[in-house]
Design a protein around this nucleic acid. Sequence first.
DNA 1: TAGAAAATTAGGGAAAACCCTAGTAAATCA
DNA 2: TGATTTACTAGGGTTTTCCCTAATTTTCTA
Lengths: 215, 215
Amino acid sequence: MIRVLIADDHNVFVEGIESLISGSSEIEVTARCFDVSSVIEHLGHAPIDVVLLDISFPQVEDGLALCEHITRTFPATKVIALTMHDDASLIKRVVKKGAKGYLLKNTTKVELLQAIRTVHREKPYFNEIITNILLHDEPRNRKSGSGTGLKPNLTPRESEVLTLISQGLTTQQMATQLFVSVKAIEFHRSSLLMKFSVPNTALLIKTAMEMQCID
Amino acid sequence: MIRVLIADDHNVFVEGIESLISGSSEIEVTARCFDVSSVIEHLGHAPIDVVLLDISFPQVEDGLALCEHITRTFPATKVIALTMHDDASLIKRVVKKGAKGYLLKNTTKVELLQAIRTVHREKPYFNEIITNILLHDEPRNRKSGSGTGLKPNLTPRESEVLTLISQGLTTQQMATQLFVSVKAIEFHRSSLLMKFSVPNTALLIKTAMEMQCID
DNA sequence: TAGAAAATTAGGGAAAACCCTAGTAAATCA
DNA sequence: TGATTTACTAGGGTTTTCCCTAATTTTCTA
């Protein structure tokens, strides 16, 4: 029997998934969680084979973080990401966080059961629609044109400052936190702009996110 | 017997609603529609008391238009709008289009059945959460941290400015391009910071990307 | 159709970002 | 050892961002 945990704060969806699974003789829903903490708590007590995780749980960031936590802490438990969005970059980010499968919420009963069985056999599950989305998404390594698209080599301090910038801190705040002057931080920021070949912080954040230097 | 039509292109959701309703002796689901045209066609043939309409069907504009069409063409049929978003402006727009009730997709069985019964008795149904949202004119259900996870409603100008910011233009460049003063652009930028609840442009870009408002 | 609400347009002033130069310390190499 | 490179630190001065307020135009509504 494959034990499934449903992690979704939308009651209707939990009901829907349960209803779709209920017919199966080899899969059973043994837990339903409406918030992040109860998912973690439950996984620590009872064994779960597959987690069906709403990636907006309740927000995208939370879902991604939870996905990462589950796959690291409970490697035997496989995660299938569920979402409304057919977005290539989101799929990539989810996979990067350790999800073994990705389903849209308009999936069918057959596909849902298939996906659960597949990831339980240690295999990744992505249907044709998802595969197509990934295929048609433009390749990241465009070596021609203005930008190289390659991650620049950052010094430890620069990486540190980049992370803090992406968290919304001002130069003053970073200076305080790192025990250096405002001018020192400003220089690192300037170096980042140069290394990423961008004119300002706005584009720095955008390109750094696209290159997945931050997230 | 109250006859209900479910209009949603997400299979899991339709299953969930059916499952929640299935226990009731006075309410039955007599139709499930996965696209706009089949909803209209079905209403023309068989009588329906309550339509449970996913407002993103498949886009928000489609849902609103369909809601308006149903309430005008079939006044005996009541519409309950369903959505993931707890957004005051969306609720107002939906109500303006003739919806008698509004439910979030994390509703409970009790509430769903209550809502169906209430609108069938010609009364509007809005629970405390929705009422609060309307009263305070901002989303309530922020379960995690500072981020809302909800796309703010942007004016045309704001969207335009957001796009240009994400392209790395400075305020001066945008002012030239849009034939207005620097100060006008700066105000729009400020409005964006406020609507996204972020302290600076760096976080604005980050959150707007995560919410898929840009890119 | 008048009144209210929302959107767009700015100004002044403070804060932050940005661009230049430059000193110091550690690692690398001839 | 002495010269060179790399990373980190910082100052001066200009531009841009950010926050406050407010007038004008447009849109919605009673």
